[in-house]
Computed example of a mutant assay.
Amino acid sequence: MQTSIIGTILPVLNVGLDAGEVLLSETGELSWKSPNVSLRTGIAAGGAGGFLGAVKRSLGGGGLFMTEYVAEGGPGFVAIAAKVPGHIEEHAVQPGRSYLVHRHGFLCGTQGISLSVVLQRSLGAGIFGGNGFLLQQVSGQGRFWVELGGEIVSHTLAAGEQIDVHPGHVGMFEDSVNFEITMLPGLRNKLFGGDGFFLARLTGPGRIWLQTLTLPNLAHALSPYLGGGAVAGAETGAAAGLAGQFIRKVFE
């Protein structure tokens, strides 16, 4: 399997498959492919282990179904494009280890990769964490690719080292990293600061990947251009229409 990541702020992952090789992704990820690559969609892929496993996976933000891309009769290729401005990164996972990825972060993986919902480690994380804590767990053995928004800031936490992060900026972290919810200090900060009530506290040891762009922030930045009433000028109206289509696509 040969891979390349093409582009900058809206990259595309190009995967070259040898005959018989398989690439696994959630449904709806395909951008383009060679004609000899066939698609097999089902619930058992990605280590689901049947219908209940697929339901559990979907609770983590993924889909009930997953798609396998198989090169038949010779080499082929599959391309998967990013959905938001950001970066695509490749990682490898080994048996006994796993990564936790934000709910829309998993892009695709090789055979042997298992995708499921992570069990929340604290009640607060499940109730107050927001979308940033509906996490997917990538385990098994093989290579996988993730899509993170904006720029990626990675850091290796030493044992006991901590960092407080807005939940939406948590992109991915190793399973050795512990996370919990901590409340933002100060009543005025909570009510008027605009940063919400809670932060994610990540505690080492382990590596973390933070993303600078969150979907709510992107939606907020574009909202003035969506328009709620009459729009002056055809050019402005066209721009608002395109922005609206982009927002709807992001949140599909």
Rank of each mutant, 00 (worst) to 15 (best):
G229M: 05
L30Y: 14
K190I: 13
V12L: 13
S114E: 01
H155C: 14
V118I: 09
V170W: 04
L242C: 06
P75H: 03
G46T: 02
M1G: 08
G47F: 03
M66T: 13
S154V: 12
I43P: 09
G76E: 01
T27H: 05
W32I: 11
A79S: 15
E147N: 15
G130P: 10
K83W: 03
A159L: 14
V22H: 06
D195I: 05
G96W: 08
G130S: 09
A125T: 12
R103H: 15
K190W: 06
T110E: 01
P95T: 06
G126Q: 10
A232K: 13
L191R: 01
F133S: 04
W32S: 12
P85M: 14
A240L: 10
D195W: 03
Q245E: 07
I9S: 06
E151G: 11
A79N: 14
L10H: 09
F179D: 06
V84G: 13
N189Q: 13
T156L: 13
P185N: 06
F144C: 00
G96N: 05
G42V: 14
A239M: 11
P85H: 14
T236L: 09
G86D: 07
G126E: 09
G7Y: 07
N14C: 15
G244K: 05
M66K: 15
I152A: 08
Y69P: 01
A243L: 07
L210W: 03
G140E: 03
T214K: 05
G206R: 02
F192G: 06
S116A: 04
R201Q: 10
A232S: 12
V117M: 12
R103C: 14
W145L: 07
A45V: 11
H220S: 03
V250K: 02
H102L: 05
L23T: 02
V153F: 14
Y99N: 10
T3L: 10
R188S: 09
I208R: 02
G86T: 04
A125D: 08
F144V: 00
L215P: 02
T41K: 12
G233S: 05
I5R: 03
L242E: 04
G50S: 15
R248G: 05
T41D: 09
I80R: 01
G171I: 10
L24Y: 02
P205F: 12
Q136L: 07
R103G: 13
V84A: 15
V117W: 06
Q141M: 04
E89Q: 11
E29M: 10
L115D: 00
L115Y: 00
